[in-house]
Each structure stands twice: as structure tokens, then as C-alpha cells.
Amino acid sequence: MQRTNHKNSREDEFEPAGSTAELLVLEPIGYPLSSVLDDYPEIEDAGVFEFYAREQWNGCIARKGEYLFDRRMYPDFAYRIKEVKPPGSVIGMETLIIVHEDNATTPTVEFHSNICFDDVIGQDTAKQKCKLIEKYLMQPEKFGKWAPRNVLFFGPSGTGKTMLAKALANKANVPIIPVKATQMIGEYVGEGARQIHQLYDRAEDMAPCIIFIDELDAIALDRRHQELRGDVAEIVNALLTEMDGIVEREGICTIGATNRTNSLDPAVRSRFEEEIEFSLPAEEERVKILETNVATFPLPVKDVDIKKIAAMTKGFSGRDLVEKVLKTALHQAIIEDKEEVSGKHFEESMGKVLHKNGTVMDNRMYS
């Protein structure tokens, strides 16, 4: 059997085996020479294609930007490697192979999230409720029709919804497919629905796994407002079909995340068996968020009262604290070529945020 994966099309050339590739994303390129078969040969069954692809390229070194040539299904048809995880790894019989068609957005598959539950500060109620999902992902066969297939994370932006989904995947040791809902909106009628079905087809091949749809309201917008975007109805219908389990897909948990529950289509919202609320951090939690992130600064911190900052930032999310307070203070110190981040830098960053929010800082934080 001939195998090729080098840019200069050398065949039967291999390197010493390395780690096995977990994910291989291919882009269809075409035939090296003109042919009556100039069009991309449509893959009718992704599972069959993936089986033959693994078998014929088993043992090949996969590098981003290089080519693989089909020798069995569509002889001499070329695919360019768009992504391989880990880089420079070997294609094996367990490698997940995705063909990136029609310039569609390929969801990123995170096989090994290193985020833990302890990394999500606060949200104790949400963590407790996630234990059921964890048990389902670890032993889906035990749940039968009583599986927690659809779960809604809701609450203000920046409160840890994405982090907790990744921590859950890590704890259950399953893959997670994180998707921005806006990525699923197609340019043409029917494209959005097709991408949703393809997403679930891929998840079924990887099950048990998590599909995490962030900004869910972007595609599950109340259909009463569909005149704002003409493809809403067909996207919502495709999502409903998948969430209803008309096609049995065991081992998949869909987690939707939104900060606009009132904008969700009632039919979609009713499909979530569980709604888990995320709240803004309390003062003691803000202290911990600040302390944890300050500890990772590349510069030392001097004369900064973390507790005072926490007291003044009521209503801030964890993301607000990191992006608007800590990062601004650190960047200002770097701009000034300082060797440390001082209270002055935090005072200035707090002043900007509070002024923007319409709050006056009556007294200085630091003497």
C-alpha cells in the first residue's frame, strides 16, 4: 500500500514513529492534473471515509500544511493538512479525521482540557449540579432514557460558564467541542442547519463527549424575531431535532450558555432538562480571584490592598476583574518600564473603570 504525506509527493517515506495523532483536519484540494473528475468527490458517509482514511494513512507523519493523497476511494485526490494535534504526530487507527468542506468553520476539539473545578472560583451550586452530568458522561449506559442530555448554563458574562464546561470534560475525561453559536450561522439558506447536524454527527463519533454552545441566543433566538435574521427558523428547527433525540445519539451532552435567557426561543429553552445559574462573585470570591491572578503576574506587586479593590468592585465578574483591573494595571507598569506593579497602577486602572461605569472614586485607595 502506498502512502504519501510530504509536500514534494515522495511516496513510501516515513520517519520514526512518534505520538499518535488525536485529531486530523483535512482540506480537500483536488487532483494534481486536470481530470474529468475536477469536482470534489462528495463524501456520503463520513464514517466510511474516516475508516478508509485511517487504514491507508496509518503510520504516516502528519504535519500542518503538508499533503495526503488518496489511493483508494478517489485515487490521486489531494488533501492538505489544516490541523493536527499534537503537531507532527503519527496517524493511527484511533485518529479522529475531519474533512473541512466548503470553507465551513470546523469546531475545535479539545481532547485534554487542563482546567479543574478548583480553577473556577465560586459557583458552588453549579459545580454540585454538574456532578450528575459527570456521572452520565462516565457511564452513559446506566441512564437510558433518563440521561441529562441538554443543560443550560445561564448568568452574566465572565462568570465561568465556559471554564466549568471544560473542567467538567476534564473531570469526566471526555472530549469537549466548544462552539461559538455565531460560527454556526451560514451565509446561505440551509447552511446553518447543515452545520448543526454535522456537529452532532461528529460528536456521535466521539461519544461520550460534550458539545458546548456559547452565546446560544445567537442561533436560538426567539422565532418571533426571525425577521431580524431570515435563517433563524431553520437553525432553530435543526437544533430542536438534535436536542429532541429523534436520532438516538447516546453519550452526548449539549451544554448551552447564555446571558440572555429572555431572548431564547421558548421551544429551545423547554428542551433543557436542567438550568444552572451562574452568579457574580461575592466579595470574598473577588478577593480570591484577584489574589490567584496577581500571583501569575510577570512583575512583582507592591503596596496593593487586594481586599480594598475587592470591596470596590461589587457587580464585577471574574472576567471584569482580570481584563479591566488587573491587566490594565500590569500593562501600564510595563509601558512605564517599571520593575513592579504598584498601588498607583491599580488606582489608575480602578479610576478608569469606575469612571466609565459612572461611579466616582471619592478617596484614594492608597496613601
Rank of each mutant, 00 (worst) to 15 (best):
R63T: 12
I334V: 15
D118A: 14
E42N: 04
N262E: 15
T108S: 11
Q183N: 15
T95P: 02
C253Y: 01
T105N: 11
R3Y: 01
R229Q: 12
I334R: 05
T105I: 11
I335A: 03
M365S: 06
T254K: 00
S367Y: 01
V174L: 08
I210P: 05
I334F: 07
M138Y: 04
E340D: 08
T162D: 08
S157K: 09
C209V: 05
T296D: 08
Y136Q: 10
R194K: 15
K324A: 03
A311Y: 03
V189I: 15
I176F: 04
K7M: 11
F69N: 03
D214G: 03
V109H: 05
A329W: 06
E11H: 06
N259K: 03
D38A: 12
V90T: 15
S263D: 13
N170W: 05
P75I: 03
I306G: 00
R202A: 10
A172G: 09
V36T: 13
T159S: 14
F297D: 02
N237I: 01
E44C: 01
E340Q: 13
V301C: 11
F143Q: 07
L68T: 02
P298D: 14
R224G: 10
R364N: 11
I235E: 02
M350D: 04
D45Y: 05
Q123W: 03
S34I: 13
A147E: 11
G315L: 11
V48R: 11
I98L: 10
P32D: 04
L326Y: 02
I98Y: 07
A267S: 14
Y52F: 15
I97W: 03
